[in-house]
Measured scan of single mutants.
Amino acid sequence: RRKSKRKPPPKKKMTGTLETQFTCPFCNHEKSCDVKMDRARNTGVISCTVCLEEFQTPITYLSEPVDVYSDWIDACE
């Protein structure tokens, strides 16, 4: 008699959501930077609500707010 092989359980999909508020690289306030994605103009704007620092970068249809933040961090270095 042959043993029946069980199929492995399906893999769980990533359910965690990406951050939309970030720590400002200038004033170091946590969750003080908000990202606005202007898909019509293909630009992402991130601004700090505390020190009013602002950064704008081009985006694509695949871009997420975390991509705008990482572009800002890269531009600071």
Rank of each mutant, 00 (worst) to 15 (best):
R1Q: 00
R1D: 15
R1K: 12
R1C: 07
R2D: 10
R2F: 03
R2C: 01
K3I: 15
K3R: 08
K3T: 11
K3D: 08
S4T: 13
S4G: 08
S4D: 06
S4Q: 05
K5P: 07
K5F: 05
R6T: 14
R6S: 14
R6G: 13
R6D: 09
K7V: 10
K7P: 14
K7D: 04
K7F: 03
P8S: 14
P8M: 09
P8H: 15
P8Y: 05
P9M: 06
P9F: 14
P10M: 10
K11D: 09
K11T: 09
K11E: 12
K11C: 02
K11N: 15
K12L: 06
K12I: 12
K12S: 12
K12T: 09
K13Q: 08
K13E: 07
K13D: 07
K13L: 06
K13G: 07
M14R: 14
M14H: 13
T15A: 11
T15H: 07
T15I: 13
T15Y: 06
T15R: 06
T15Q: 13
G16L: 09
G16H: 07
G16K: 06
G16M: 08
G16Q: 11
T17W: 03
T17K: 09
T17E: 11
L18C: 12
L18K: 12
E19W: 03
E19K: 07
T20Q: 14
T20H: 05
T20A: 14
T20P: 10
T20S: 09
T20I: 08
Q21H: 14
Q21D: 14
Q21W: 15
Q21A: 05
F22A: 04
F22L: 08
F22C: 01
F22T: 04
F22N: 02
F22P: 04
T23H: 15
T23F: 07
T23M: 14
T23I: 10
T23C: 13
T23S: 13
C24L: 01
C24K: 01
C24W: 01
C24R: 01
C24V: 01
C24A: 02
P25D: 02
P25G: 02
P25W: 06
P25C: 12
P25H: 03
P25N: 02
P25E: 01
F26Y: 08
F26K: 15
F26T: 11
F26G: 11
C27A: 01
C27Y: 01
C27D: 02
N28C: 06
N28Y: 06
N28I: 01
N28M: 04
N28T: 14
H29V: 09
E30M: 01
E30P: 10
K31P: 06
K31W: 04
K31Y: 04
K31R: 08
S32V: 12
S32G: 13
S32C: 13
S32H: 08
S32I: 10
S32Q: 10
C33V: 13
C33T: 08
C33W: 01
C33Q: 02
C33I: 05
D34Q: 08
D34C: 06
D34R: 06
D34E: 10
D34G: 15
D34K: 14
V35S: 04
K36Y: 03
K36V: 11
K36L: 08
M37Y: 02
M37F: 02
M37W: 02
M37Q: 01
D38V: 06
D38K: 02
D38I: 06
R39P: 09
R39D: 05
R39G: 05
R39T: 14
A40S: 06
A40P: 03
A40W: 04
A40Y: 02
A40V: 10
R41G: 12
R41C: 08
N42F: 05
T43D: 05
T43Q: 10
T43S: 09
T43P: 00
T43Y: 03
G44D: 02
G44P: 00
G44N: 03
G44F: 00
V45E: 14
V45F: 04
V45H: 13
V45P: 01
V45S: 09
I46M: 06
I46E: 04
I46C: 06
I46F: 03
S47F: 09
S47M: 12
S47I: 11
S47C: 12
S47H: 08
C48N: 00
C48F: 00
C48E: 01
C48I: 00
T49A: 10
T49Q: 11
V50E: 14
V50M: 07
V50N: 13
V50Y: 12
V50I: 06
V50P: 00
V50K: 10
C51H: 00
L52F: 11
L52C: 13
L52G: 13
L52K: 11
L52Y: 14
E53N: 05
E53W: 02
E53C: 05
E54M: 07
F55K: 02
F55V: 03
F55E: 01
F55S: 03
F55G: 03
F55I: 15
Q56C: 10
Q56H: 02
Q56P: 01
Q56S: 06
Q56M: 07
Q56I: 10
T57V: 06
P58V: 11
I59F: 00
I59G: 03
I59K: 01
I59Y: 01
I59H: 01
I59E: 03
T60I: 04
T60R: 11
Y61D: 15
Y61W: 11
Y61P: 15
L62N: 14
L62G: 11
L62Y: 09
S63N: 06
S63C: 09
E64L: 13
E64C: 02
E64M: 13
P65Q: 09
P65T: 09
P65V: 09
V66R: 10
V66Y: 04
V66C: 09
V66G: 13
V66K: 11
D67L: 02
D67N: 12
D67C: 03
D67K: 04
V68H: 00
Y69G: 02
Y69D: 01
S70V: 11
S70Y: 08
S70L: 11
D71V: 14
D71E: 14
D71L: 11
D71K: 14
W72K: 06
W72Q: 02
W72P: 06
W72D: 01
I73R: 14
I73G: 04
I73A: 12
I73Q: 05
I73N: 08
D74Y: 10
D74W: 07
A75W: 09
A75E: 12
A75V: 12
A75R: 15
A75H: 11
C76P: 04
C76I: 12
C76R: 14
C76Q: 14
C76Y: 10
